[in-house]
Simulated scan of single mutants.
Amino acid sequence: MIDFRVEREKCTQCGSCSKDCPSRIIVMDGEGYPAIAPEKESFCLRCEHCLAICPAGAISILGYRPGESLPIKGGYPDPLQLETLIKGRRSVRRYKPENLDAALMQKLLEVAWHAPTGVNSRQVRFTVLDDRAKVARLRDEVMEGLIRLDREGMLPASKAYYAKFVKLWEKHRVDLVFRDAPHMLVASAPKSLSTPKEDCMIVLTCFELYAQVCGVGTLWNGIASWAIDEMLPEVRRSLGIPDDHLFGYAMLFGKPAVHYARTVQHRPALIHRVP
């Protein structure tokens, strides 16, 4: 059941919900009000376009009510603010040695969860290390595994440079894999989905941008991602990532110990305009 409800005293019978429904299952009934036939409910994509578009706030669906949603008018950043956010975000490799507030961390995850996914599948899974001690334990496990692979000559040829990370850790306890970050997030999704990799990357992008405006630094961590997913499957299992999930990517995050003063500049975009 999708629990599609219309408050008739509010409904203006404008038909916007019917026109905007991607599945075209909302029709205007004999009295001019939107309705969904029971046999059509299985075709609902659960996108909530109907709830979002209703100017009068008359439509509820899936147990969600318009009064509990944020109003969009006046709520978006202006173009210059968004441009500054996109151009100004930085990969953070220096963090303060402290945990984020638990409420802030939860908020970051909940907002990122609203990112778009293929066919609105919404099955991206967050694996979160929410305490510095947990990241330290993971680091020790990963470094122990990399040390073993290096000593046994088992590092893949394409990842031979990991030997440098191992030596720096063994000799100087310099952590170039996890960067002494207090937290880590892994996004994964069922391989059976139409777009598992894309879903994970979009969700992490949304997480990163929202984190930036909340004063939280982030780092897309390919070094840790490849180590865990490609070289040390036992670590993946210890993190509890399901076997049937595609490992999207790992992202470090926490309070930054560095602050940048301005955006950077790049050469012009590579653009091909189709004739």
Rank of each mutant, 00 (worst) to 15 (best):
N120F: 06
R122Q: 15
R122N: 10
Q123I: 00
Q123C: 04
Q123R: 06
V124C: 02
V124H: 00
F126I: 08
T127P: 04
T127C: 05
T127Y: 01
T127Q: 09
L129Q: 07
D130C: 08
R132Q: 12
A133S: 13
K134W: 03
K134T: 04
V135Q: 11
R137M: 14
L138W: 04
D140E: 14
D140Y: 02
D140R: 12
E141V: 06
E141I: 09
V142E: 11
E144F: 09
G145D: 12
L146V: 13
L146M: 13
I147A: 09
I147L: 15
R148A: 12
R148M: 02
L149R: 08
L149H: 02
R151S: 12
E152A: 13
E152H: 09
G153Q: 14
G153V: 12
G153K: 13
M154T: 14
M154K: 15
L155S: 08
P156G: 02
A157M: 11
A157Q: 14
K159F: 11
K159A: 15
A160S: 14
A160I: 11
Y162P: 09
Y162L: 15
K164D: 15
K164C: 06
F165L: 15
V166K: 08
K167E: 11
L168E: 15
W169Q: 03
E170S: 10
E170V: 15
K171T: 12
H172N: 11
R173T: 03
D175P: 01
V177W: 03
V177N: 08
F178M: 04
R179N: 06
D180N: 14
A181R: 02
A181Q: 07
H183F: 07
M184S: 09
L185H: 09
V186Q: 00
S188C: 00
S188V: 00
A189C: 10
A189N: 04
A189H: 02
P190D: 00
S192N: 12
L193N: 05
L193T: 01
T195P: 01
T195Q: 07
T195W: 03
T195R: 02
P196A: 01
P196E: 02
P196C: 00
C200W: 00
M201K: 08
I202E: 01
L204P: 03
C206W: 08
C206Y: 14
F207K: 00
F207T: 02
E208V: 09
L209W: 04
Y210R: 08
Y210W: 05
V213H: 11
V213Y: 08
V213A: 12
C214L: 06
C214F: 06
V216A: 08
G217N: 05
G217M: 10
T218S: 06
L219V: 05
L219F: 12
W220D: 04
G222C: 06
G222K: 09
I223S: 10
A224K: 01
A224Q: 07
S225F: 13
W226I: 12
W226E: 07
W226N: 14
A227R: 09
A227E: 10
I228F: 06
D229G: 13
D229M: 07
D229S: 14
D229W: 06
E230W: 11
L232W: 07
L232S: 05
P233H: 05
P233R: 03
R236S: 06
R236P: 04
R236Q: 10
R236N: 10
R236H: 10
